[in-house]
Nucleic acid binder design. Structure first.
Length: 106
DNA sequence: AACATGACATAAG
DNA sequence: CCTTATGCCATGT
């Protein structure tokens, strides 16, 4: 049966995030079906293998902040990747007003 | 099976 | 703004 696991649904949603856009954990969880899966979303990304096609760096907190803080090595890396795609950062936070993903694009 | 932990969100004080 | 508490699900021990 085509019973997709929670992780698969989450990965599917994340994989739909276009370039130059970001999405929050809660947002992904909401698109996947339940917004309470925000935690599972985090765990799903945490469990991602290296070399995965999942754009984990396009996933940020609801405020637009990166995990670990913008000063963290991972935070710097994530910020850099997003900036290369055209996402603007202000004080370590994404300008969600302009770059938060909206599914209306499709 | 039970408990603890975790890339979160929300509410309340 | 910060800390607590609660909700939700998956994983590790």
């Amino acid at each position: 049966m085509s019973e997709k696991t929670t992780f698969e649904m989450i990965y599917d949603i994340i994989g739909q995030i276009p370039e130059g856009a970001v999405a929050s954990y809660g947002q992904i969880a909401a698109f996947a079906g339940n917004r309470r899966w925000a935690r599972v979303v985090g765990y799903a990304l945490h469990a991602l293998p290296h070399g995965s096609d999942i754009p984990w760096y396009r996933v940020v907190k609801k405020d637009g902040g990166v995990i670990g803080g913008p000063d963290s090595s991972g935070g710097i890396y994530q910020t850099e990747l997003l900036q290369k795609e055209g996402v603007e950062f202000v004080d370590g936070y994404v300008d969600m007003e302009h770059y938060q993903w909206k599914k209306v694009m499709f």
